[in-house]
Simulated assay, not measured.
Amino acid sequence: MKHFTMGELCASTTADAHNIKNTPPLQEAGNLKALAENVLDPLREWFGKPIYVNSGYRSPQLNRMVGGAPTSQHMKGEAADITTGSKAENKKLFDYIKSNLPFDQVIDEKDYSWVHVSYKRDGSNRKQVLKL
């Protein structure tokens, strides 16, 4: 992991505010590492500017609290919601991921308010492109 730390992939103001432990188990930590090495770090290398993680790993308790899907890949450490702080720049990230990187899902969330990207380290990536 070159440009992202495990701490930022697990950080949550909601978890902090509600005293929820959001430390990933070993399997999930390995998945986060694979996500960073295969998608997030290459994306950052290409982009050349900071990319921020809004939401990475979520413990089941945290996922319920934030209204995440019961089968959310965030709970598996396979997903991150990322942003540059700009919808136009987020669209660039989305388009680059879609065309150049391995991924399971890439989702345009709320007209590029952020980009959800997931990656399965077992290689069974579906390359789903979605808009929510």
Rank of each mutant, 00 (worst) to 15 (best):
K92S: 10
P102S: 10
I20V: 14
L43N: 01
G85R: 04
A34N: 13
H3E: 00
S118V: 07
T14I: 15
Q128V: 02
K91C: 08
E37V: 11
R64W: 05
P24Q: 14
H74M: 06
R121Y: 12
F4T: 04
M65Q: 15
H74N: 10
N90L: 03
A17I: 00
V115T: 10
G123A: 03
V115D: 08
Q128S: 06
D16V: 10
K33P: 00
Q73G: 13
N100R: 09
N22T: 00
D111N: 14
I97H: 00
K127Q: 14
N125G: 13
K49F: 04
N125D: 14
K131A: 14
A80D: 06
N38G: 05
D95F: 02
K92P: 02
R121E: 14
N31A: 12
G123D: 05
M65N: 09
N54M: 07
F94I: 03
L132Y: 10
A79M: 14
T14D: 11
V117D: 06
G67P: 08
N125K: 13
G68A: 09
L9W: 09
Y96E: 10
L132K: 13
H18A: 12
A29M: 11
V53M: 04
Y57S: 08
K33G: 01
I20E: 13
L26D: 14
R121W: 12
I107C: 07
L35M: 11
A29P: 08
S86F: 06
T84D: 08
T5C: 10
T83I: 03
S86D: 11
N63W: 07
W114C: 12
R126Y: 04
E28Y: 05
R126E: 15
R58S: 14
H116Y: 07
S99K: 05
T13I: 13
P25M: 13
D95T: 06
L35W: 06
A69H: 14
P42F: 02
F47T: 00
V106A: 04
G123Q: 07
L40A: 03
Y119P: 11
V66D: 12
H18M: 11
S113P: 02
D108S: 10
I51H: 01
M75I: 07
K110V: 06
Y57C: 11
D111F: 03
G56T: 09
S72Q: 07
M1K: 00
T23W: 03
L130E: 12
L62F: 08
F94E: 06
L40M: 08
S59P: 09
V66A: 10
A36N: 01
Y112G: 02
D122K: 14
E28M: 09
M65L: 15
T23C: 00
A69T: 07
I82A: 03
T84P: 02
D41R: 08
G123P: 04
N90Y: 02
